Simulated assay, not measured.
Amino acid sequence: MLRNIPSILSPELLYTLCAMGHGDEIVIADANFPAHSAGPTCIRLDGASATAVLQAVLAVMPLDAFEPVPALTMQVVGNPDSVPDIVADFQSILDAAADHPAQLGNLERFAFYERARSAFAIIQTGEHRLYGNIILKKGVIEA
C-alpha cells in the first residue's frame, strides 16, 4: 500500500506513468475507442470514468509546461466547434488539478487516432459518454 496515490491508479498504470519521459504522451480513452488495435500498450480500467482517471493521473503526473497545448481531445465529427459536456469536464479538471493548467486543444477524429498510435500507452476506461478521449503530454518534475 502507498499513501497519497489515488486508488484508481493500478500498479501497471503507475509503472507506466513513472516510465514515461518528458514529452511522452498518454491517451485516456472512452469505452468505444479502438485502444487495442491502435498499437501502444493498452491498460484497461473498465470500471472507471475518463474524468476520474484524468483527475487521478494529474495528481501524479505533470503536464508539459513547454508545450502550448499539452492536452488534446477529439473533435465532434461533423461539428468541430461543438464542445461535448465531457470535454468541458476535462477542461474543468485541467483548470483545478493540473500543475500547469492549459486550454485544451483538439484534433479531427482520424488525426486523433493517428496521434494515439504514437502514444506511450492508452488507458481504456469504461467511459460511455461520447468523445471521452484525451491525450496528455508529460512534463518534468521540477526540483
Rank of each mutant, 00 (worst) to 15 (best):
D85E: 14
Y131M: 07
I8C: 13
V69F: 02
Q124F: 01
L54C: 09
L107G: 01
R3Q: 14
V60S: 06
F90I: 01
R115N: 04
R44N: 12
V87S: 05
R44I: 11
L2R: 15
G78R: 04
G126A: 06
A48D: 13
Q91L: 01
Q75Y: 02
P68C: 04
P40Y: 10
Q75C: 05
A96M: 10
D30E: 07
I93W: 00
D81W: 10
H22K: 12
P40G: 06
P34H: 07
E12N: 14
A96S: 15
E25D: 08
D64M: 10
I5Q: 11
D85Q: 13
A59N: 11
M20Q: 05
I141W: 13
Q55T: 10
V77R: 15
R117E: 13
N79H: 15
A119N: 02
L136A: 03
N32A: 15
S10C: 03
Q91N: 02
L54N: 05
L45N: 02
P70Q: 09
N79W: 11
Q55R: 13
V53K: 06
V83E: 10
V57N: 01
V76I: 02
V77H: 14
V57T: 02
M74P: 01
I8Q: 11
S49N: 07
L13K: 01
G23H: 06
S92V: 06
A59G: 10
D95F: 09
P80T: 07
I134H: 06
D30G: 14
E114V: 04
E108M: 05
I134K: 06
S37I: 09
A88Y: 05
L9Q: 00
Q124C: 05
T73Y: 02
C18I: 09
G132A: 07
A31F: 09
R109V: 00
S118C: 12
E108A: 14
P6A: 08
G21R: 14
N4P: 01
L58M: 06
A59F: 05
A143F: 11
D46K: 11
A71M: 08
T73A: 08
L136N: 04
G21Y: 09
G78N: 06
V53M: 12
L63W: 06
I134S: 07
L54T: 05
A116S: 15
D30Y: 04
G132E: 03
P80Y: 08
